[in-house]
Simulated assay, not measured.
Amino acid sequence: MKVLIATDKPFAKVAVDGIRKEIEAAGFELALLEKYTEKQQLLDAVADANAIIIRSDIIDAEVIAAAKQLKIVVRAGAGYDNVDLEAATAAGVCVMNTPGQNSNAVAELVFGLLVFAVRNFYNGTSGTELMGKKLGIHAYGNVGRNVARIAKGFGMELYAFDAFCPAEVIEKDGVKAVSSVEELYSVSDIVSLHIPATAETKQSINAALLGRMPKGAVLVNTARKEVINETEILEFMESRPDFKYVTDIVPGNDAEMKEKVGGRYFTTPKKMGAQTAEANINAGIAAAKQIVDFIKNGSERFRVNK
């Protein structure tokens, strides 16, 4: 049984060591493809793999077709829109994610970005404080719950909307559940995005929604690039000089954003949410354990395709 780690952005060595320990203890072989520069290298590497561990790497129909022995793909992280689920299902391949392993890392980044934003990007001018501000959490999953936990320490008022999470689950954490996306944006000084990129959510964060937010509002996006209507957010920010946008996902119109609203907009050079030593290790080892459990016991606990 051959398990391939295919990572354009490699795991830390300690994470690879932990993965290797789990895989080899199960009697499986581990192979590494790191920092590859061409898709053909990935196609060649998957040819005899039975299982693949990835990060943000693209596993599309071509990759799945090249992996004739493939049984399972595990995305070390929460999001899995970089895997073609339909192609995997058609080929009889199980796809899993590792929910919760990166959640604290992403949540801490949210507050790193927020403090930076409300202090006017440390430009020497007087900013504002997070204490007493109304924070809207858009999607109350693992990351959203960690955001709520940290926000309490800042003394913020917490609101959340999640179409799939019962209100009583949200409210038992001391967070006010609202009944619609529109209500969340209307009531919140700050909104933190944690929605996945789906047919329903893509480009859903638009001018009409952001226009509901009060003066001095901040949007922080550590979720997905695709959920933002990038054309509209730029136009909106030009019309609302009080509004700030911070993200760890470089927009397609980054250069134009910097040129036109640069004093109120910030993006990290690449996606940073899971870029901590702890998250790197946790997600990688969780992926290895899930592969072993799937191969040996048939466990599909974290399966995300049908």
Rank of each mutant, 00 (worst) to 15 (best):
V3G: 10
T7R: 12
D8M: 15
F11C: 06
K13H: 08
K21N: 08
E22F: 14
E29V: 04
L32F: 07
E34M: 13
K35G: 12
Y36H: 14
T37F: 11
E38Y: 05
E38C: 12
Q41I: 14
D44F: 01
D48H: 10
N50K: 15
N50M: 14
I54S: 02
I59E: 04
A61V: 03
V63C: 08
A65K: 14
L70S: 12
R75L: 04
G77Q: 09
Y80K: 03
Y80D: 01
N82T: 15
A90E: 07
N97C: 03
N104L: 15
V106N: 02
E108T: 09
E108Q: 11
V110Y: 12
F116S: 11
N123C: 08
N123K: 11
T128G: 14
M131S: 14
G132H: 15
G136Y: 02
Y140M: 10
G141M: 08
N142R: 15
N142V: 07
G144H: 05
G144D: 04
R149Q: 07
I150F: 06
G153L: 06
M156N: 09
E157I: 15
F164N: 10
I170H: 06
E171W: 12
E171P: 10
K172N: 08
V175H: 10
A177T: 09
A177K: 04
A177M: 09
E182I: 05
E183L: 06
D189L: 09
V191A: 12
I195W: 06
T201R: 03
T201A: 07
K202D: 01
K202Y: 06
S204I: 02
L210H: 09
L210I: 09
M213A: 13
T222K: 05
T222F: 04
A223C: 09
R224Q: 01
V227P: 00
E232K: 00
E232F: 00
I233K: 01
L234D: 03
D242N: 10
T247H: 00
T247A: 05
T247N: 02
P251Y: 00
A255C: 10
G263T: 04
R264A: 10
F266I: 14
F266T: 03
K271Y: 02
M272R: 07
M272D: 08
G273W: 07
T276W: 13
E278S: 11
E278G: 12
N280M: 09
N282K: 13
A283C: 10
G284W: 06
A286N: 02
I291C: 14
K296L: 10
G298Y: 14
S299D: 08
F302A: 13
R303F: 08
